[in-house]
Amino acid sequence: MTPVLWVEQTLNGVQLGVMLFLMSAGLTLVFGIMNLINLAHGSLYMAGAFFAATFTLWTGNFFLALLLALAASALLGVVMEYSVLRRFYGRSHLDQVLVTFGLILVVNDVTRLIWGVVPVPFGIPTFLSGSVFVMPGLPYPIFRLAVLAVGLLVALGLFLIVAHTRVGMWIRAGASDRVMAGALGVDVPLIFSIVFAAGAALAGLAGLMAGPITAVQVGMGEPVLILALVVIVVGGIGSIRGAFIAALLIGVADTFGRVLLPPALGSMVIFILMAAILAWRPRGLFSAHG
């Protein structure tokens, strides 16, 4: 493998990792705090992409569209939480899996009804298209670099909030022991609603950034959802730090696995990695539950 290929794949891997982190951040906290398995998180990812594509078309302004899409994803998340998921906090995981699976079916078909079955075009503004040379002999798409930068910035911001603010302490406390946090005066349901909305917006952000790279189509969320689940299981449920490290690990491993190994093995690499890590630590790298 040449150095150029090496650098390129590393960039791709980190970019995938950052994207996975955006998907997993909300998921792992929701899981940690409310013990809720939300398979419909992938629907928020898909919604983010569709919203952004459509708002870009309507407003003609890429950045305005992005903001609107984020707000819309957050709103969709709040609606989902408030209308359905809220009833399922105390219920069994079986019920949660079923109800969120039902939600996936509903959201997928509603999306088909609104946007049709063909992938929706999602153009990026000219200043983000094209490539730059990141090193001699390696042109790299500007948009992918932008995705990488935004992802890292958001991850950093999120990390600062969660690690260094009072709200962050409440979130982590809630993720590790919801009842005790409540008994010490933390309004856990409120914190949770905020986390859910923020998680929805982040999933939407991941989706809208992936949109121009992959394709904006129904069902785009589910493969990413499963990768995100792998990330949070490896990182330890409820841990932001674990999610970040695991996301980068999985992103890089997946990218290099596909390049270096025969296809049959390459597509399985991350799952084998997950199995190995869990065989060693059944609760993931940094479980919030001690």
């Binding site: 398995i37 995981h93 449920i237 597509s267 799952f271 997950m274 869990l278 059944p282």
Partner: peptide, 22 residues
């Protein structure tokens, strides 16, 4: 099976995806 509850659900889901890609 060494894991419990939610972990079990998500690991089996991941294994399913693994065999699917395979």
């Amino acid at each position: 099976l060494r894991t419990m509850g939610a972990y079990f659900i998500m690991i089996t889901l991941a294994f399913n995806q693994m065999l699917y890609y395979f």
